[in-house]
Design a binder for these strands. Sequence first.
DNA 1: ACCTGAACACCGTTCAAGT
DNA 2: ACCTGAACACCGTTCAAGT
Lengths: 210, 210
Amino acid sequence: MNKAAYHHGDLRTALLEAADTLLAEQGAAGLSLRAVAKRAGVSHTAPYRHFRDKAALLSALAAEGFRLLAEGLEAAAARHVDDPARQLKEAGRVYVTTALAHPQRARLMFGGNVALSDHDPVYQAAGERAFNGLQQIIHAGQAAGVFRDDPVRPLALSLWSAVHGLVMLLLAEQIGDVPAGDPARVATMISWVTEVTLSGVLHRDSPGNS
Amino acid sequence: MNKAAYHHGDLRTALLEAADTLLAEQGAAGLSLRAVAKRAGVSHTAPYRHFRDKAALLSALAAEGFRLLAEGLEAAAARHVDDPARQLKEAGRVYVTTALAHPQRARLMFGGNVALSDHDPVYQAAGERAFNGLQQIIHAGQAAGVFRDDPVRPLALSLWSAVHGLVMLLLAEQIGDVPAGDPARVATMISWVTEVTLSGVLHRDSPGNS
DNA sequence: ACCTGAACACCGTTCAAGT
DNA sequence: ACCTGAACACCGTTCAAGT
């Protein structure tokens, strides 16, 4: 753990850790590559050995976030395999709480401000994996007769949009009476959105929803 | 329209126009106050006569975006007063298309990266106005027996989240097969999301949706 | 009131150079 | 291979000064 060892072969990790700390403190806008290098105890040009430019470092940070999110979603789905509706609700809950646990990272991941679409295959991979998982749950729910027998893609996109939208509204503090910090109120909103999206808005003669 | 007149009393507007152009071209990250000043034909310190700092300029830009969006939503709602479901679908369409028509401005408005929450009352006002309008539509729909008789706020939040989430996913180019530029595919997705959110995902014995 | 130019403390990135 | 220090062209912001 001495300086020489720390900066020997593991500088990339050290830079990512430093960047993650600074990101959480000040957001992506206030994060400077020079500050990251300084925090890692290295000259301000050293990062260029490991990242093509600043965007590449932020990109790596976002990629890690997508990986963690995908894992959390899969774990949530694995917990209630025989109850598709519950799987969706739990996955939605994990999606929102994971993002809000690291708001600056989530803004980085979802804000679309970094050149994340720079063909870094990690995003595509994580996104596709998550979306495929979602579609599989829906398919299972249809096979079990719990979900409507509509085409899967519209259903999946709607669920994803609803949960993603809630995250973004909370992150941007655009929901009037919620200062984005109250976990209980956030939990309530998650329930609202997932349950309404599952049940729909239109009037129905035979409710039958939990 | 000579230089002297242009920079006389209307520099604020000129700066906002220059900033809007640069924003559309390069995004908020690549927008420099000095470039805005240069484009407006003025020294790089002149903007400080009209905006406290760079964030204030961006904030004004976002505020204008919220105002335009709120107007569009109200116009859409006014077009189909006697058909609440149609009002919601049309408002959703306007929400998505307006944002995608000026993607960089939308990222600025919704990304949560600018200090928009700096108590600029315009955001709160525009947001509340839009949300209240949404709740009124739902209320009318319930009175007409078209919508479920559930509490209004969860229904409103769910619709808002779904449409907002679709916008953000498209803006971040996080939807696998849509390069965010194809209007026909975007229109399809809007229909999917609004209709599924209205009808729900769960199986229902008596469909009855349009 | 409104604008300017110099100045300050930062940036990201490049490049020759050191080990 | 990996890191450094100087250098370049930018930033946002402040401030004394001009009209």
